[in-house]
Amino acid sequence: MGFIWYLIIRLGGALVTIAIGAVFVFILMQLIPGDPAIAALGENATDENVAAFRRMHGLDQPLPVQFWIWLSGIAQGDFGKSITLAQGYPVWDLMVQRLPNTLFIAVYALVIAVVISFFAGSIAALRQGRMSDTAATSASILGISMPDFWLSYVLILVFSLGLGVLPAFGFTSPLESFSGALVNGALPAFAIAAPMAGVFARILRAALLETKRKDYVTAARSFGFRDTFVYMHYIFRNALIPFVTVIGVQVRYLVGGTVIIERIFGIAGLGSMMVDGAFGRDYAVVQACMLAFLVFVLGVNLIVDIICAFLDPRRTH
């Protein structure tokens, strides 16, 4: 019972945040100087062109009216239409085209980060104080210290232009070819994953060290269980909570990272669309992308909390 209530409260909180976020995003877009008509009509547009454009797309309406039209549209599942990226194209269709790419890259990066950090963090904690610990710990902090956009270019230099093993450009939608997406997405995913892996590994190491000293671990050891068994069942399991929690925290860096990375590697994702939309003053597109990011971050955090609640039921109270 307590858990259901906890879920409802959390979900309600997230919805409120999204609603406030919608207002916030709308206002932010309006504060940006510039004119979508210029972005759409180009350098030859006359004043009459501009006026006609504004009329056609309802930009001449008072802001509260525009906001209401947008909001009530969303309530009915209509995110409006693009005006400068693809005039008249429903924003929802654009999102549907691009969401899989961004999700794929994000999840790909997350998986890479989790796998790397699992090994690095475990080795560091189990062999605390030895060479391998120092190596893993140093590698982690080095990873954290690398700006992802710079790492992208270094990766291109080494793996694409130098060794010629991975493509530097040209993403394939995972829906068209999963293996193609894996290969094409490798460099961008790794560029995003490296700093995250560093963060994760450090958290895991610290958490493992702490649980290692706990009484129940000592007790389990004294029963004569094998080391790997003790590690998986007692130590790792209990160290998972801070590990999972930090994923929730990192997801906002993860999503933010896709913005530049998608552009460098030419991935048609939400991040690159949002940047193009922002420079083109395509209000509906940008607002929808921002909301999608908001929902994604809050959603992941919600899932993280639920997992933590399962791992440690005391949290729901």
């Binding site: 010629g164 493509p167 394939t172 068209e176 070819s177 293996s179 997406a181 290969v183 094409n184």
Partner: peptide, 12 residues
């Protein structure tokens, strides 16, 4: 690079 790079996905 141009010679050795395998082509994938859409291109393939």
């Amino acid at each position: 690079t141009a010679a050795a790079m395998p082509t994938w996905g859409r291109l393939a």
